[in-house]
Nucleic acid binder design. Structure first.
Lengths: 332, 332
DNA sequence: CTGTTAGCGCCTTCAC
DNA sequence: GTGAAGGCGCTAACAG
């Protein structure tokens, strides 16, 4: 055996960096973690050496020593664990998992009961968690995010003073959609909403009401959810109650497809008799019949931003809203 | 101030267990990790104490000491990183993330270039990874799974001697589908396949050929992929080449929807002139028009099994195939 | 501002 | 079979 190099190079450690930079491990650590109690020359030297050596901090060791964890928890609020099965959740976790890969942190997924404050406590107390991405939070839940999580929690949806939020501008999207419906001559526009407990989806309802009010048109609201079934029953309900309805705005594409199914069942032409618009622009939206008019929802970008913010540990802006673009197809 | 109080009780550690059981930390460790060099009474006492104390080993510390990591990597093979955006991948990661949550391990997601052997090496060498779930593996890739990963890798799709596999029985599902088509009078059945490099989806093609051959019918194969666009062009192609085609079997539901769109475009009635069948039974399959006849694909259960196997570290059976059930709707 | 000294919680050689 | 040490790689208290 010829000496030190056995082919499998041992990973370079902080020790190596420190030695090469001619400082102590502590100083190297301070330089790399961005502590402010380091001299500028020392910091720069250490950083340069680390970069040239291709040093990657060991998240495990760091987490163990600092007491900060090594995993990102995505907690999805909802009335029951079924919310975890959602395609939306899938995209969020996916994006977070892709972001985490680079940093060596994994993502785990957890259901957050709507009034399950104990879970939040537990997440905050768990030494293995590094940060939290909250999905579908309510104001009540946000108020209960433990102090210990402050600065390492981000919410996709509504936020609070302590928890920054990232979301789609669904108010903007809804406004564009309703305006489009009005612009194409619709006057009796119903809306099938999402779950009423979910504040970020209520933004859409408020906008719908506001735009209609501005145009001097009446609002016709039917409560729903995010599933196609909700669209089916919602549209049935709407047409039963207001038979002269000439457009349906759905909270999401799945609901819109359900609504279209209901209308087909009733012998109503789409978009001839009733226009239908969705929200999200899911892949399938383009392939049904008629192809769905909708608005984009860059879930992946949103989740990536959220995960990046948590990982960066940096407190980003308190609120970031991604733009939603109109997608005009056949249904409205 | 409910909720904001993070009463961080010091977590119980191995030390506590050892003391309470009247043994040394080393012995307690051996007892709990299932080492065979412990006396039975010592083992049982330690285990009982651990259970009654509610001891949970710290994954981080364990990973750091043992060199085994704390995250599960889901690596998706494919020609380009776009495979990560797939809804299928979303479900797999989701399920894995839910399983990992209990054990305190997170999952991260990574693209695996089809011939990117270096990535596999890297995963194997990365001390922060605990295990690997391979998605859409090829035989070439499987052969390159590093030795160091043996016993902590599972493949969703095809497997090898070293890497156990979990998958849907798509051969069985395809057989049921083709048999159904034949049973309802179809005789000129085309198939739009998945990506040809993907062995687990080729099983479906082989079955399609075999069942047709048994019935003395000709095979009409068009290469495709997993996207609706592939179904669109695939069906166009098939009907152009074999105008008398009376059924189309698609590799998945998205492709089936694309195929239906193509047929609609051509003025062909579904299922009157041409029957269309998909595979997967995605949520949207029931809501298009006509509603899609398909076969179930319990992705979530499969991914859960895979993640559980990796986490358990136990070498499960070399191959597990989940049953696929026929779902008869309107399109075929 | 820096280096030294202790750990974080666990596994794993070593002696016994 | 068991216990006593010595790390894993890093951060966080201390002194200087």
């Amino acid at each position: 055996m010829a000496g030190t190099d056995d082919g499998r190079r041992a990973p370079i450690t902080l020790e190596d960096v420190a030695r090469a930079a001619g400082v102590s491990r502590a100083t190297a650590s301070r330089a790399l973690t961005g502590s402010d109690v380091v001299s500028t020359p020392a910091r720069e030297r250490a950083r340069a050496v680390a970069a040239s050596l291709g040093y990657t901090p060991d998240r495990l060791a760091r987490a163990l020593a600092a007491g900060t964890g090594s995993r990102l928890v995505v907690a999805v609020a909802g009335p029951d664990p079924a919310v975890l099965d959602d395609a939306y959740t899938g995209q969020v976790v996916n994006a977070a998992a892709a972001v985490g890969d680079g940093a060596g942190v994994g993502v785990s997924l957890q259901w957050l009961p709507l009034y399950g404050l104990a879970e939040l406590e537990r997440i905050g107390a768990d030494r293995s968690v590094h940060g939290l991405v909250l999905v579908n939070a309510t104001h009540g839940l946000l108020a209960r995010v433990p102090r210990s999580l402050r600065g390492r929690a981000v919410s996709i949806g509504v936020g609070s003073r302590d928890v920054p939020a990232v979301d789609i501008d669904n108010a903007g999207g809804a406004a564009a959609l309703v305006t489009h419906l009005i612009g194409t001559g619709r006057r009796r526009i119903a809306m099938v909403t999402g779950p009423r407990w979910l504040p970020c989806s209520e933004r859409m309802v408020e906008t719908y009401r506001a735009v209609l009010a501005d145009a001097g048109l009446p609002a016709r609201v039917v409560s729903g959810g995010f599933a196609a079934e909700d669209g089916l029953s919602g549209a049935r309900h709407a047409l039963h109650r207001w038979p002269d309805t000439d457009a349906v705005l759905a909270v999401c594409d799945a609901v819109a497809l359900g609504a279209i199914a209901a209308l087909r069942e009733l012998g109503v032409q789409v978009p001839g008799d009733v226009a239908v618009a969705g929200f999200d622009d899911v892949p399938m939206a383009a392939w049904g019949f008629p192809a769905l008019t909708t608005a984009t929802h860059p879930v992946r970008a949103i989740a990536t931003a959220a995960a990046t913010a948590v990982l960066g540990g940096g407190a980003g802006p308190p609120q970031t809203w991604y733009r939603s673009e109109l997608v005009l197809r056949a249904s409205a």
